Amino acid sequence: MPDLLLTIIIQFVVAGLATFGFAIIFNAPRSESMLCGITGAIGWLVYYLLIHYADFNLVASALIATGILTIFARILAVRRQNPVTLYLMTGIFPLVPGAGIYYTAYYLITDDRSAFASKGTETLEIAIAIVFGIIFGTAIPQVLFHKLVRTKKGASHS
Rank of each mutant, 00 (worst) to 15 (best):
T110Q: 10
S31F: 02
S114W: 04
I38L: 07
L124H: 02
K147F: 03
I25E: 13
L124A: 12
L108G: 14
P2N: 05
A105E: 01
A60Q: 14
L50C: 06
L58W: 02
P2L: 04
P29R: 13
S156C: 02
T151G: 00
V149W: 05
Q11R: 01
P29D: 13
I64E: 11
S114R: 06
I51S: 09
A60I: 13
A23H: 01
I109W: 04
G40P: 04
L76V: 13
Y103T: 09
T123S: 05
H157C: 08
V149I: 14
A139M: 09
I134S: 06
I9A: 08
I25N: 13
N82F: 00
F56I: 00
F72M: 13
T19N: 10
G137W: 14
R150V: 05
G21K: 11
L76I: 14
A129T: 15
Y87V: 14
S33W: 04
V84D: 10
T85M: 02
Y102S: 08
I126S: 08
I140W: 05
G37Y: 00
A62R: 06
V13W: 03
T7N: 06
G133I: 01
L63F: 14
M1F: 15
A73R: 04
D3Q: 14
Y106P: 11
Y48R: 02
R113D: 05
R30D: 04
G133Y: 05
C36I: 00
D112K: 10
F12V: 11
G16C: 12
I134Y: 08
V96W: 01
T90W: 10
L69N: 12
R113M: 10
A73H: 03
I128L: 10
G37T: 03
A18H: 09
V78H: 06
F56D: 04
D112G: 07
S114T: 09
A28N: 10
V46H: 01
I9M: 05
D112V: 01
F145I: 02
A73F: 00
G40Q: 07
A28G: 12
I126Y: 07
Y106D: 13
D111F: 01
I134H: 10
Q11E: 11
D111T: 04
A139N: 12
T66K: 03
R80V: 08
T110L: 11
L76S: 10
A23L: 05
A115S: 08
Y102H: 12
I71T: 08
V84A: 14
I109P: 04
I8S: 02
M1D: 15
I25H: 13
I9E: 01
K153M: 00
I92F: 07
